[in-house]
Amino acid sequence: MPENATDPWEYCLYIPNDPRAVTVSRRTLRLILTMHGLIRLADTAELLATELISNAVRHTKGPAALRVRWAAGVLRIGAWDADPRPPEPPVPLEQITDLEDGRGLALVRACADLWGWQPLAREGNRGKVVWCELAAA
């Protein structure tokens, strides 16, 4: 159990462009949340991280990263990838007809308290982070 559950923390897991990385990310996230006493957020956080990382691995060619941050009672989960193009806008869940494709960001929008994306440019590297937040309440 952490010394002080209110202290902020942040982790970043760099992953290859490999579908197996989604499982590694999900299991790593559960371990992080368990170690910080936030297991109550694990099921929803795993679903969200799975959708974000799946999109990063499936729709880009380069490496990706899972970013997890806790601050002020809010868990932020982000997926970085090297493609600077914005993600496709989510379709409302009730309009999804293909159960295998196109539901990722719709689930994120439905389950997260807040979500978004931002382009990144640092030291000549480009890309984006698609993120979502869960409040501990």
Rank of each mutant, 00 (worst) to 15 (best):
E123S: 12
A71W: 03
W9I: 01
G37N: 12
N55K: 05
L75P: 05
L120C: 09
R30L: 11
V57N: 03
T23C: 02
V68Y: 09
V130S: 14
V129F: 05
M35W: 00
M35R: 13
A72Q: 12
A64P: 01
P63Y: 06
P87A: 13
L33A: 10
A82N: 07
R103E: 05
T6Y: 08
L120E: 15
R103L: 15
P63H: 11
P92T: 08
D18H: 01
L134G: 03
M35P: 00
L29E: 03
C132N: 03
T6C: 01
E94H: 14
L99M: 12
R27Q: 14
D43N: 15
R20H: 14
I77N: 02
R109H: 12
L31Q: 13
L31S: 08
V24W: 05
A21C: 04
A65V: 08
V74P: 02
C12P: 00
C132H: 01
W70S: 08
D43G: 07
I32L: 14
G73W: 02
V130H: 05
E51Q: 15
L99F: 15
R30N: 12
M35L: 12
L31F: 02
G102E: 03
A42D: 11
D101Q: 11
R40I: 07
P16Q: 09
N125T: 07
R40V: 10
W115V: 04
V129R: 04
K61W: 05
A5T: 08
R26N: 14
R58C: 02
P84G: 10
Y14M: 08
R76Y: 01
L134N: 02
P86V: 05
L105R: 09
R67Y: 08
D81W: 02
K128P: 06
Q95G: 00
R58F: 01
R85M: 07
A110C: 09
P84I: 05
A110N: 14
T60W: 03
A79M: 08
L38N: 15
P2E: 08
N4L: 09
L93R: 14
P84D: 13
R58Y: 01
N55M: 13
L13A: 07
D7V: 03
P89W: 09
